[in-house]
């Protein structure tokens, strides 16, 4: 028996072979009794899978696409915002991206210029602090120890931090723990952050 051809039998049965491979299997089946026996053993395995699949029943097997989509919608605040088909008409046309990008960069340059000019003005007037006192600002910032899910990508983590106006303060250490600084530590927001799918662990760093 040609082992190379014999190894194709399961894929002949699941109909994923290329035509020339199918022909090779069929030719071997015609002339080789041992190959035919092997074919029937594989057929038995296939029937075993089919029977087991049927015996598992249908209850809950296929899930409910609508319920799943609803679940995704709940979790879509940070990843890809899900849109219904009707929202397609609101999409920005491709040709508009280039002028939009130029406009955004120009606005950023203007904003940076105004910011620098503002600093100079402050210095001239002898202004040194932020709009809130140093103590109050320190109080507003809170640091947390956070461990992210191992499969979370750097991009996902950064997007998450951006969305919550948080920054890395330190880390990761050997166990993958980060110190994350929240500049806007609203308790409700923090609780939501803790429930994010890529956050595995979170505690206040006192």
């Amino acid at each position: 028996m040609d082992e190379r051809v014999a190894s194709l039998i399961p894929f002949y049965l699941n109909r994923t072979l290329a035509p020339e491979e199918e022909e090779a299997v069929e030719a071997a089946l015609l002339k080789d009794n041992v190959m035919r026996e092997e074919f029937f053993r594989w057929l038995e395995v296939k029937r075993g899978f089919d029977a087991a699949g049927r015996a598992f029943g249908e209850a809950g097997a296929s899930g409910d696409p609508a319920r799943f989509a609803a679940k995704l919608r709940k979790r879509s605040t940070l990843y890809i915002p899900l849109r219904r088909a009707s929202a397609r008409y609101l999409r920005i046309p491709a040709w508009a991206w280039q002028p939009a990008a130029v406009l955004i960069v120009a606005l950023q340059i203007v904003a940076l210029g105004l910011f620098i000019a503002g600093i100079h003005l402050d210095q001239k007037e002898g202004y040194r602090g932020l709009s809130v006192s140093g103590a109050a600002a320190a109080e507003a910032v809170q640091t947390y120890n956070v461990i992210f899910e191992p499969e979370a990508t750097e991009r996902e983590i950064r997007t998450l931090l951006l969305a919550y106006r948080a920054q890395f303060a330190e880390g990761p250490n050997r166990i993958g723990l980060y110190r994350v600084r929240f500049t806007d530590p609203d308790p409700e927001k923090l609780e939501r952050f803790q429930r994010e799918p890529i956050v595995q662990f979170m505690e206040r760093n006192l």
Binding site: S62, G63, P65, A66, F68, A69, L72, R73, S76, I80, P81, L82, R83, R84, A85, R88, R91
Partner: peptide, 12 residues
């Protein structure tokens, strides 16, 4: 692109 119908299709 965030199209819900596409994800439902894959799930189905």
């Amino acid at each position: 692109r965030g199209e819900e119908d596409a994800m439902r299709e894959v799930y189905t």
